[in-house]
Amino acid sequence: MKKSRAAAQIVIHVILIFLAVICLTPFLSMISSSFMDIRGVLPDVPVIFPKFPLFVENYAKVWTANNFSRYFLNTLVISVGGLVVNVMISVSMAYSFARFKFPGREAIFNVFLLTMMVPAQLALISQYTVLNGLKLIDNYAGVLLLWGGTCVAGNTFFYRGFFESVPKELEESMFLDGASRFQVLTHCIIPLCKPAIGTSAIFAFNGYWGDLFNILTFIKTEEKRTLSVALQLFRGQHTTEYGLMFAASVIVIIPVIVIFIIFQKQFMRQGLMEGAVKG
């Protein structure tokens, strides 16, 4: 019995490692290529492992060219800002739908659902008109408001179930102690739903970190742009400079991965669903 279990464990590991190799090879190839001088012609043999000596000029060039270091900072500022706005709005929205009764609640909720399904490509034009009217073009505040607005439907939908699954008795005892609605939200619901909020927050952060179209559309000054726009500049009209582009890509994705690894324990271990129920 025990032996067969051990064997099963090994088999699982082998399968997972095989899958992991498939999953990671493209990334490895990208990292290795970013250390090569690739201009015009692509290498004859695929680059999987880095070739020594490493060609670090790509990184030096990327970091100095096109305001890249500046963009890095911009991206960080606006992604964190977006994250804060996103969480605040989504949590209070979801709380409204989970714990308040008011006429039209389900109707509004269904409108949320519907808007999530209609392709949003042409919305950009109207959104632009609105922000332009508010004089918020070329201003991070405009982008943050826009992100705040577009996250409402999906996140309300996502959080509502979690919030509703928090036992009402907990809240009622807090109310008896004289707590306000706001205090209940911050001291009871948010802590209990941390895993769910964490999951969605990481997603939101990634989305904002890599947002290309909104930034390109609403931010008009070169100095205020973000990494994804800079990355796009390496795809030229006539050629793509793979070496440079991959060096830039590595710089772009490393922070995201690092942040994910740091915070993954917060939500992955506890498990998304039960976190709320157990509380």
């Binding site: 800002g81 605040m88 209070s92 201003n139």
Partner: peptide, 25 residues
């Protein structure tokens, strides 16, 4: 009062980032 605080915080955050962005630019 507490919701006011909630809103104020949100607005403050928005302002802060936009200010930071402008001056930086």
């Amino acid at each position: 009062r507490s919701t006011g605080k909630w809103l104020a915080l949100l607005m403050a955050a928005v302002m802060l980032f936009s200010l930071a962005a402008c001056s930086g630019g």
